[in-house]
Amino acid sequence: MWKLFHQFGSPPHFYRLAGHLIPWFGGAALVLILVATYGGLVLAPADYQQGDGFRIIYVHVPSASMSLFAYTLMAVAAGTGLIWRIKLAHAVAAAVAPIGASFTFLALATGSIWGKPMWGTWWAWDARLTSELILLFLFLGYMSLRAAYDDTGKADRASGLLAVVGVVNVPIIHYSVVWWNSLHQGATIIKLGKPAITGDMLWPLLTMLAGFGCYFATVLMIRTRSQVLQRERNSRWLMDL
């Protein structure tokens, strides 16, 4: 187990392994997303209430889940890097932040576009939307702190500490926002109905989720590889490559 841990933590090993895995994950992402797009846009029936407008769910929900997953992964990677001083873990944390911020932004943008026809407004201070907005600021803070340091090692540890403190705070933020919202909820905001989703609508969503996951893994590996190249630019194994 420890051997595996160390082996995976070694940049050359990761670099090669990721190189082999990227085409597989990328291909899987392409197939899954195409299938899910067809399923979601063509095969799934229109919603009886929202008509075809609901179909944006196939982008919105996967991006929102990926954004949360990205923050957790970033904090776990940063924590691993801080505790066991594994450089690769820091590289993963550095690579995942912009991806997470992009998914967060996508979730906010699609939520906003969805909100216009359904709620009649581009932005509502809905609990989930607000939490997502704060999450975006957490990502941006992490990235700016990292960018402010010139020294990579220092940037890794400082931003890693912020990510770990942030992840402890995320549940508190989320529940405070939910609570704030449930008490302030005005009559003007139409709460998004949560009808039991039928199988015809569900399977493209799950497929899309898997596709987004594969896409996330692909981009993460590509970005981590480039991080490794930057960080190890003076090392021997890289010269041999």
Binding site: L140, L145, N169, I173, W180
Partner: peptide
């Protein structure tokens, strides 16, 4: 400015509970 960006999102629960 950076300090505010780091601290303000983390401080939102305090603001919410305090004002509430």
């Amino acid at each position: 400015a950076l300090l505010s960006l780091l601290v303000l999102p983390l401080a939102t629960p305090i603001l919410i509970f305090g004002a509430r």
